[in-house]
Simulated scan of single mutants.
Amino acid sequence: MTVLLVAVGAAVGAPARYLLDRAVQSRHDSVFPWGTCVVNVLGCFLLGVLTGLPSALFALLGTGFCGALTTYSTFSYETLRLLQLRAWLMAGLNVVVSLVAGLGAAYLGMALVS
């Protein structure tokens, strides 16, 4: 049953990631990956909020939805792409902003429900 809950959450989270990423990125004329940054920070916040849920609900929303919404692989790829383009500042900013904002968002989410 838990695997099904994770799959259902992921089936909603993955398209949500794609649509939100495209919506955010289309509003910026920059090599900085704003879309990925926004979905990852939002996912960190949501996961922080969801930490106290019962295990079945956490499997659906935390592991399934947030797991599919956020994307470490795309973050890594986009950072490497920026390095290949010699956009050193943007690559460094992507790493720092993603880590600091992600950790801050997760902390804020947890603090809101504590």
Rank of each mutant, 00 (worst) to 15 (best):
M1G: 09
M1L: 09
M1R: 14
T2F: 03
T2L: 03
V3P: 10
L4H: 11
L4C: 04
L5G: 01
A7G: 08
A7T: 14
V8Y: 04
V8F: 15
A11P: 05
A11Q: 12
V12F: 07
G13C: 07
A14P: 02
A14I: 03
P15F: 06
A16G: 15
R17F: 12
Y18N: 08
Y18Q: 09
D21V: 05
R22C: 13
R22H: 15
R22E: 15
R22Y: 15
A23I: 08
Q25Y: 14
Q25D: 13
S26V: 07
R27N: 13
H28E: 14
S30E: 14
V31L: 10
V31E: 01
V31G: 09
F32Y: 13
F32L: 12
F32M: 06
F32T: 11
F32S: 10
W34T: 02
G35L: 06
G35W: 09
G35H: 11
T36S: 12
T36L: 03
V39I: 09
V39S: 01
V39F: 05
N40D: 14
N40H: 05
N40C: 04
V41F: 06
V41T: 06
V41D: 01
L42H: 02
L42F: 02
G43D: 08
C44D: 06
F45W: 01
L46E: 09
L47R: 03
G48T: 04
L50S: 04
L50M: 13
T51E: 14
G52N: 15
G52C: 13
L53P: 03
P54T: 12
L57M: 13
F58Q: 00
F58D: 00
F58R: 00
A59D: 02
A59Q: 07
L61G: 00
T63G: 08
T63A: 10
G64S: 13
F65I: 05
G67I: 04
G67D: 13
A68C: 09
A68D: 04
L69C: 07
T70C: 06
T70R: 08
T71Y: 00
T71L: 03
Y72L: 05
T74W: 04
T74M: 14
T74E: 04
F75N: 02
F75D: 00
S76G: 15
Y77P: 06
Y77I: 12
E78L: 08
T79Q: 10
T79H: 07
R81L: 10
L82F: 03
L82K: 09
L85R: 13
A87T: 08
W88I: 09
L89S: 10
L89G: 09
M90A: 12
A91D: 02
A91F: 06
G92I: 09
G92S: 02
G92Q: 13
L93P: 01
L93W: 11
N94P: 05
N94V: 05
V96G: 14
V96M: 14
V96I: 10
V97I: 14
S98H: 02
L99W: 11
L99D: 12
L99P: 01
A101R: 11
G102F: 00
G102M: 01
L103I: 11
G104K: 08
G104D: 03
A105F: 01
A105Q: 00
G109A: 05
A111F: 15
L112H: 12
L112S: 05
L112K: 11
V113P: 02
